[in-house]
């Protein structure tokens, strides 16, 4: 376990990344905003570090809940029509 050794926060473990760096990068990893090398290191670190594993799962759950629960507002039926009417030039008389 990464967090049982003396390099708990700043030293790299077998994953090639420190606990602190992994914690700092978890959001970017979740958003697929790290390169393949760093992504691989974070992925390996999560497997052997319970605090990082738990935080990653929590962040992932929140992200998924946001996506499924917060975008259900229906567009008013007349909105598209109202926009279209306003961009249509008046027909010549």
């Amino acid at each position: 376990m990464c967090c049982n050794n003396s390099n708990k926060n700043t030293g790299n473990d077998s994953s090639g990344i420190s606990h602190k760096d992994c914690m700092d990068l978890l959001y970017q990893f979740l958003d697929n905003e790290v390169d393949d090398k760093v992504g691989g290191q974070v992925h390996e670190h999560i497997k052997i570090c319970m605090p990082c594993y738990e935080r990653y799962n929590l962040d992932k759950a929140i992200k998924e809940m946001l996506k499924t629960k917060c975008i259900g507002k229906q567009v008013p039926k007349d909105l598209i029509q109202s926009i279209k009417v306003q961009i249509t030039p008046p027909s010549p008389k």
């Binding site: 738990e54 929590l58 759950a61 929140i62 809940m65 946001l66 499924t68 917060c70």
Partner: peptide, 12 residues
């Protein structure tokens, strides 16, 4: 994570 998944959505 389980706590968040149990929330009905309004909380989020």
């Amino acid at each position: 994570a389980e706590t968040v998944q149990d929330m009905i959505g309004d909380e989020i």
